[in-house]
Amino acid sequence: MTETESVFKEKEDVLLRPVEESDSEFLQQLIQHKNVRDTIGRPPKPLNRNEEEKHIEEMSSNDDAAYFLIEFEGEKAGTISLHGLESEYGKGEFGISIHPDFHGKGIGTESVKMIVEYGFETQNLHKIRGGHLEDNIPSRRVMEKAGLQEEGRERDYKYVDGEWKDVHWMSILEDEYKS
């Protein structure tokens, strides 16, 4: 049985499935890619395989979060997670990383659409938000296509290549999703 058989949700050629410990090497390659680690929320620290496995273990036992591996045409392409499943008022926040080898194929857009659908229809959240750094326009486009709109800018969010970058928070509410 391949891991792809554990498909949780799919749209077009993109599928979401649970992350397994055996995905740790792929996650290392993904998170440590310069283009990825410069754009995600967590600090750019190296993680070895053991640390990455521990991270997967923590995520899978965390009731507040859902963590998915994104596959495109049967290949590992990225990850997407949704936090805040148990938060007061039902406010979810997602984070997504697509390996640069798979950029420009619409994988991010399909994945975010699926996480939005999952958040509202399966987890009954009230609001879902995501952030992108000020110069990450592709990420903004992905969120716009999934129906998110800007709600604010948080100044000096992350330090990259010797300068501070702002993050723009985007969100969608359940009424907007259902209309």
Partner: peptide
């Protein structure tokens, strides 16, 4: 299996340290 390269240099790379 060697760990992925974290920082790339001209003739030197820095990669994660693994159990191997």
């Amino acid at each position: 299996m060697t760990g992925p390269v974290f920082l790339h240099g001209e003739s030197t790379d820095l990669r994660t340290i693994e159990e191997e």
